[in-house]
Design a protein around this nucleic acid. Structure first.
Lengths: 220, 220
DNA sequence: TTGATATGACTCATGGGTAAGTTACCACAG
DNA sequence: CTGTGGTAACTTACCCATGAGTCATATCAA
């Protein structure tokens, strides 16, 4: 990126202002929040600039376009989510217990920056271009991970129809998203409480889950 | 509305063109399809006008604004959906069997005009104003219907926590929507096949459903 | 002087909305 | 069986707010 002079690393490459890397990071942070909370279509570049305390052209200097900025935000946010999915996929649990662990990890990961969830799954985001590509790359990885888990459970249950598996996967993803969205709509609920709620709900629907306490006593 | 002369009812109150009521119906039909397929934000009034073979100002004459037109479309579509929910709510089944019947009714109702589903649940629709009010009125009725069913089942299962019920209801709605959306994404699947698929999926997850054939033999 | 940070003041395409008119048909007076 | 006025249906040509994107320029460290 930034070149270094031989004898000494220039801390703030010759300028009155903030070093580009720092400024970019700051802009991305502000933009993630704006895009995540109001949606891509309802957020103007001027909004982001104002929130960041800078002017619009600086954003175009650094990110090229509104979509370019959005692409960086999505990549940043998707990487965060994916890291959490990857982490929780390394446990050796299966079925509902694994689902609960995944949800729990996601609640904890989202707690400090809840807006990145809606940023990634923003229905007003562009449906082509760099920012869409970034989203699709993430979704593809996520899809594979989920499809594997679902198809294995379906096979175990004696159903190996391809379309049934596809539909079941869609349902599972939607359940996951609706639980996260419910939690985002109830900001006073802590991740731990929300995980306990998921355990109770799954237990109510499917019976006790191996490895988790009985529903009766888990109320926070 | 149109005044009538004493001796004879004027069939097409003095005009060269199409009677207003007919034209309005035609515009609404075209607009429903456009809004439903491309979304409110991605559909311009000029698009609708062109698709209907008329000019933009005529739409403003009849509907006042883009949002006014959308409101009529949403009301029309929501009424269709609601009629189906009401109808299937009059059966005396409960639990999963009732869920399957509701889904089946919805698939059949949507088959001739699948776009009205996405029209009603359009994430790019305005979040205030007449069109939003129409949506909310519908959602409120739907919410009550769903919440009643879910809370009863939760109570039966021994969980009467208010927030658990709220979250479970959100999950159930999301499952319903994801099944409909999966079906809309697979237009070659008939309503009957899709219902059979739902039966298999529920059976796989929860065990046999009272009143429906065993999963093994239901493949179309 | 060079080059990086930074901005005020623009251009311009899009799309919602409107003003002012045209056409065709009907009712009715002469 | 004609004018003639009223009105519903319909359009052309425009206005204008918004927001993406750009250009010329200013400032300051090395």
């Amino acid at each position: 990126m930034t070149s270094t002079t031989p004898t000494r690393v220039r801390p703030n490459a010759g300028t009155k202002g903030v070093a580009r890397a720092d400024r970019e990071a700051q802009i991305v942070e502000v933009a993630c929040k704006a895009f995540g909370e109001r949606g891509y279509a309802n957020t103007s570049v001027a909004d982001v600039a104002e929130a960041a305390g800078i002017s619009k052209p600086l954003i175009y200097n650094y990110f090229g376009s509104k979509e370019g900025l959005h692409a960086v935000c999505v990549e940043h946010a998707a990487a965060t989510l994916w890291a959490e999915f990857e982490r929780s996929s390394h446990t050796d649990t299966v079925g509902l217990a694994r689902a609960v662990l995944t949800l729990d990890g996601m609640f904890r990961a989202l707690a400090p920056q809840p807006w990145i969830w809606r940023l990634v799954f923003d229905p007003t985001a562009p449906d082509e271009g760099a920012s869409h590509d970034a989203f699709q790359a993430y979704e593809q990885k996520l899809f594979t991970l989920g499809e594997d888990g679902v198809s294995e459970l379906m096979r175990l249950a004696g159903n190996d129809d391809h379309d049934d598996t596809s539909a079941m996967h869609a349902v599972w993803e939607s359940v996951f998203r609706s639980l996260v969205n419910w939690w985002l709509d109830h900001p006073e609920v802590s991740p731990e409480e929300m995980t306990a709620r998921c355990v109770r709900m799954f237990s109510t629907a499917f019976g006790p889950i191996e490895g988790f306490a009985d529903p009766a006593g888990t109320r926070a």
